[in-house]
Amino acid sequence: MKWLVSLSEKEQRMLIILFILLVAVLALVGLIGLGVKKIMQFQSRKVDEGMSYLVTTKVVKDERHFRRLARKKNYRLVFAQYFFPILIIGLDILFIFLYVELSGDQAIIQEMFSYDARGVGTLFFVFDWANIPRATFFGLSLPSDWPPILNTPHFVLAAWPNYVFVTTAFICAIWLLVSTQAFIARSWRIYKKSRTIFIKSLDSINSLDMINK
């Protein structure tokens, strides 16, 4: 603890800020993780919808049968949920392809993410991370300030094909990821439930009760 006392006031303040930042980041990640977990629990309910009446009517009587049928139904749901994002991505690619073919403007593809031409980068703050100000702290070179700004958000009319293409592709990518998350959630529930539904347990059986009856 002696080293803590020997620190200058500036260093102590910096240490406290770093600690608070670390705790805030960990808490935020923990919250996001809990949120994702809750969403996955909600998504996995589709398995119950499709399989519960098959188990209660005893059409499905064993673990292997349950898992096989549930997997088939899961694949159907994957197909249904992937269909629209993949279709939209396909149309999106067709759109940019047709635009380049009709206008003969190949450069728009190369400028897709640029901030100083006709890219989507024009819509965002762009920082010069390579030249971020640094300070030495305990022998470590750490960032000490925000980096210089290279671009502030501004609309470029000539960049509209890239705006449309990248935005649509981004939305579809998120859509696909959420569908994949649902796929994982359902697969996990199928596996877990198949192990517990048809379990033959001696714990609930009392043979003396049966004899007395």
Partner: peptide, 9 residues
């Protein structure tokens, strides 16, 4: 929550 955050990272 913090422990979970660390675990997720």
């Amino acid at each position: 929550l913090i422990l979970f955050g660390f675990l997720y990272i």
